[in-house]
């Protein structure tokens, strides 16, 4: 589970650390981003994403907790602050799981159109966002590879 990834340990494998998404964006930068992308609030039980939906957006969970479900099965809980949904953002394919709110909360939703708009207004921030999303995807792919290998 990565709880004992001794990150600077000489004899440990390369760790899969936590990524802070857009870590070097200042508060002013975020204010600019949030002028363009929209924040969405939800109540417990609301579906943020529905399996089978076509929806090219990713989410940043700004408050509350959501869970990943397929059918009746809860696969995982996503805590506050997490970034999710980036796969459909990139490939535009149908959502594979439902993301349901466990509590009330809010999330920033970024669509591909939003990224285009952001790129036109704030090219530097958009570049960072795209790069960081790529980093997220890469990290999750590494994790999947490791999981498959184990």
């Amino acid at each position: 589970m990565g709880l004992f990834d001794y990150s600077n340990a000489a004899d440990s494998v390369e760790p899969l650390q936590e990524i802070t998404f857009l870590a070097d964006l200042s508060s002013e930068d975020w204010a600019r981003v949030l002028k363009i992308v929209k924040s969405r609030v939800f109540r417990a039980g609301d579906d943020l994403i529905r399996a089978g939906d076509k929806d090219d957006s990713f989410y940043i969970l700004t408050s509350g907790e959501v869970e990943v479900t397929i059918g009746d099965k809860v696969l995982a809980t996503i805590p506050e602050g997490s970034v999710f949904g980036e796969i459909s953002f990139f490939d535009g394919a149908l959502r594979s799981a439902t993301i349901r709110a466990k509590s009330k909360g809010s999330a920033v939703r970024v669509t591909r159109d939003d990224l285009d708009t952001l790129a036109a207004w704030e090219p530097e921030i958009a570049r960072k966002m795209l790069f960081d999303l790529g980093r997220v995807l890469a990290m999750r792919l590494r994790w999947t590879t490791r999981l498959a290998a184990s």
Binding site: G2, V33, S39, V41, T62, S82, R140, W143
Partner: peptide, 30 residues
């Protein structure tokens, strides 16, 4: 917490500087 992490198969977490984002995201009424 441990089980939640385990059920998520310990997927590495991706987060944002939550305070900053939330400060700029606003509004509570629905």
């Amino acid at each position: 917490d441990f089980r939640a992490l385990d059920s998520g198969k310990a997927e590495p977490r991706v987060g944002v500087k939550i305070d900053i984002v939330r400060r700029n995201a606003g509004a509570e009424d629905l």
